[in-house]
Structure formats: C-alpha cells, structure tokens
Computed example of a mutant assay.
Amino acid sequence: MSWNRTKQPAAPDEAVALPYADRAEAGRVLAERLAPMGLNGAVVLALPRGGVPVGYEIARRLESPLDVLVTRKIGFPPQPELGVGAIAEGGEPVFDRGLLDRLGLTEDDMAATVRAERTELDRRVAAYRGGRSLPDVAGRAVVVVDDGLATGGTALAAMRALRVRGPSRLVLAVPVGAEETVRSLAGEVDDLVVPAAPWDFRAVGQWYRDFDQLTDRDVTGWLERAGNGRGHFR
C-alpha cells in the first residue's frame, strides 16, 4: 500500500515498483508526489545520512533550499542497536516509554547515553553545516525527508523539534516505510507522503538495490551540489 495524507491535491496514488534502484531514484519518485502540493520553495530538511540524497532530488524538483536536520538514535546501552528513543538538534529526547517500561528503565537511567548522543549530534552538525545554524522555519513550509521509516523514532524526534519552531506547514516525506510506523506518525504532521508501505517490511535497506552506507563526506558533497555549500539551488 501507499500512504498519502495531505491537505492539498497530490499526485495520483499509483503503485510504486520496488525495490528502488537507489536513494536518488527514490527521491525522484517522491518528488513527483510532492510537486502538485504547492510546496515550491519550501525548506527541505533531510535526516542524515541516508535522507540527504533523497532530499537532494526533492529540493531540485521543488526549487527549494536543502539542508540537514541532525538526529541521533538513543540506544539501549547493552544493545545499542535497539532504539529506546531519539533526539534531534534543538529538541528534547523523545523516548519510547512502553519499551523503557518493558526494559525496566527510566529516562534518568538513559542520561549518560543521551549526553553521548548529544556530543555526537553536535559533531555532525559542525561537520555538515560548519558555523551555519539550522534554517529559520518559523512561518515557512518544511519538508522533512528520510530514506525510509522503520521504527520512526528519529523522525518523531525531528517532527517534535521542528513543530515548536512554528512552521506554517510540516510535511514528512519518505520513499518507503513500515505501515504501522507510518500510521503512528500521521498525527505529528500536516502532510504525510509515503509512496510505499509494504506489508512485509523488515528493514529500509530491503527496498533498495543499492543501499550503500554513506559517510560525512557524502553528506557534505550532496549539500555542496545543492548550492555551492549553501544548500540552496540557484
């Protein structure tokens, strides 16, 4: 199935051929879904690293500025790949309280992990944007982009960090996502565009033929391509 919950006319709900060739193709498919929605010039914020090549294609299609919104997963210390929450720059940690309860943990128990992730988040902000601050989104339409939604923890942290900044319209757009996760995020945004939400979703990389791991240099390279280091198509 696909998911297209919008307040504005959107592209026809056509079936998407999976897997995507790569993130660039996924971005172009997503851009065509976003193009009829009156978002030209909206700020496009990609979640690095994987969301940046997707966001590049969207920003180019919408003639919009492209930048990053850095997020970090907060992992269960004995098993860091198990995310119990997430944090986005400028925002507070967002925890999966049900999972914390099942693990017998409190938010206070995660304080050291949160500090470590804030440190890494700050490092990545400096690496990707240097001295530039996060774009001012107050009163502007914002499109948040990632390469997929699995648990949705980082996307949720991103939405809540942005919402308090007062955007006029908050859009979440991803090429593919787990159906349950997509539904759970619908109430956090004004518009949600996900061209594919397969019933047998196990991992984001499952839906790409080329899903290479990206580096910090890859991220800065995409931003430079978008606008000579300013993250803005000219």
Results as ranks from 00 to 15, higher is better:
residue 87 I to R: 02
residue 169 R to L: 13
residue 118 R to T: 12
residue 211 F to M: 04
residue 63 E to I: 01
residue 29 V to W: 10
residue 29 V to D: 11
residue 165 R to L: 13
residue 113 T to R: 15
residue 96 D to F: 04
residue 156 L to T: 03
residue 173 A to P: 11
residue 193 V to I: 10
residue 183 R to Y: 00
residue 69 L to Q: 05
residue 158 A to L: 05
residue 88 A to K: 04
residue 62 L to F: 04
residue 66 L to F: 04
residue 144 V to Y: 10
residue 137 V to I: 13
residue 6 T to E: 11
residue 74 I to C: 12
residue 227 G to R: 12
residue 97 R to Q: 14
residue 128 Y to H: 14
residue 108 D to R: 15
residue 162 L to P: 02
residue 114 V to H: 12
residue 7 K to W: 08
residue 102 R to V: 03
residue 217 R to P: 04
residue 98 G to A: 09
residue 177 G to F: 07
residue 180 E to Q: 14
residue 173 A to T: 09
residue 33 R to W: 04
residue 103 L to W: 03
residue 115 R to W: 09
residue 128 Y to D: 11
residue 37 M to L: 14
residue 213 Q to A: 13
residue 84 V to H: 08
residue 56 Y to A: 04
residue 77 P to F: 00
residue 221 G to A: 05
residue 70 V to A: 09
residue 36 P to A: 09
residue 25 E to F: 05
residue 146 D to A: 02
residue 113 T to E: 15
residue 80 P to V: 01
residue 127 A to I: 01
residue 207 W to K: 12
residue 183 R to T: 08
residue 15 A to C: 00
residue 86 A to L: 02
residue 200 D to M: 01
residue 160 R to A: 05
residue 46 A to N: 10
residue 129 R to W: 06
residue 152 G to F: 01
residue 172 L to D: 04
residue 149 L to A: 10
residue 48 P to D: 00
residue 209 R to K: 13
residue 234 R to W: 13
residue 159 M to H: 03
